[in-house]
Design a protein around this nucleic acid. Structure first.
Length: 281
DNA sequence: CCCGGAACCTGAAGGC
DNA sequence: TGCCTTCAGGTTCCGG
């Protein structure tokens, strides 16, 4: 599942191949990929334009175009971008393709159809709904403290809320909470300032490790050349139910929080009196 | 405003 | 062996 490190890996790996190129053609295999927008709006807004910058914001990929406008891409749960040339008919799960003036093709595949590709005038609508970038210097422990202040929801739910912090998903939230030794069901407003400092450091450490390992391949995620990431090999708790904690040897457990599987170590992340009661599988 | 749950979607995995 | 149910989780919407 593409989270910040996966999208950042894709951004860095496609940028050299697409920067400065013009969009020669756009193929849409699944019309709903543009969501509320029509296919025509996407095509008319982007055709012939030059890609002048490739950015990431949270889990979104942004292709900036000359003479105004952006292509906003979200990979959803199972989306991937593959670089290559078109050969024959579109592969299974292909949702759209961007063909550049040198023949380079960005193929967007997405089995579960949660992803999207749209043309927008600018990023203002996106900025309005996203919290800060967790790896930027403006994301300080004090900023994290103010985000957690007066929030009664489980800390896990707060970490994956894109309007509060952008880019953290299920896997890296679990990893960060493990590194900070905080139980995922702790009420966000119950964290002490030293726990907030640990969590701040843990978030950045988990995300940077993910980027360094080129993302985590748990199911569908692939790098643009088709290869897998390695970040999952370093996971301490995420997707490790029943295995032993590398720190204390306890058995990693999994519980449902907000309908999402949450992995943690009961030894390193003990239940706390302010935790929200739960049933553990 | 804050919080939690359902819906969207389809391949994979588990149960009988 | 095969059918059926459940699970996975990023985002959005809705109800309390």
């Amino acid at each position: 599942m593409p989270e910040l490190p996966e999208v950042e890996t894709i951004r860095a790996e496609i940028a050299p191949y697409i920067l400065g190129r013009h969009i020669k053609n756009l193929e849409i295999y699944w019309p709903s990929v543009t969501r509320t927008q029509s296919s025509q709006d996407l095509i008319l807004g982007t055709l012939g334009k030059q890609i002048i910058r490739v950015r990431r914001r949270g889990k979104y990929l942004i292709l900036e175009l000359n003479s105004q406008g952006i292509i906003l891409l979200h990979l959803g749960m199972s989306g991937s971008l593959t670089l290559g040339a078109i050969t024959g008919s579109a592969p299974k799960y292909a949702r759209a393709a961007i063909i550049l003036d040198d023949g380079t093709t960005i193929l967007f595949c997405d089995p579960r159809k949660f992803g999207s590709m749209m043309f927008l005038d600018d990023t203002s609508a996106l900025e309005a709904k996203l919290g800060p970038e967790p790896l930027e210097s403006s994301f300080t422990p004090a900023r994290l403290a103010s985000i957690l202040q007066r929030r009664r929801a489980p800390i896990k739910a707060v970490l994956v809320d894109q309007s509060l912090i952008a880019g953290i998903g299920n896997m890296y939230a679990d990893e960060a909470l493990f590194l900070a030794r905080i139980h995922p069901l702790r009420r966000a407003d119950s964290l002490t300032s030293s726990e907030i400092s640990s969590l701040h450091q843990a978030i950045q450490r988990a995300l940077r490790a993910g980027i360094d390992a080129k993302g985590a391949t748990v199911s569908n995620y692939r790098r643009p050349d088709g290869s897998t990431g390695r970040a999952q090999e370093e996971f301490r708790v995420a997707h490790r139910k029943g295995k032993t904690c590398p720190r204390c040897g306890a058995i990693i457990t999994r519980t449902m929080i907000r309908g999402r599987g949450s992995y943690f170590c009961p030894g390193c992340q003990p239940e706390h009196k302010s935790s929200i009661p739960s049933h553990i599988e």
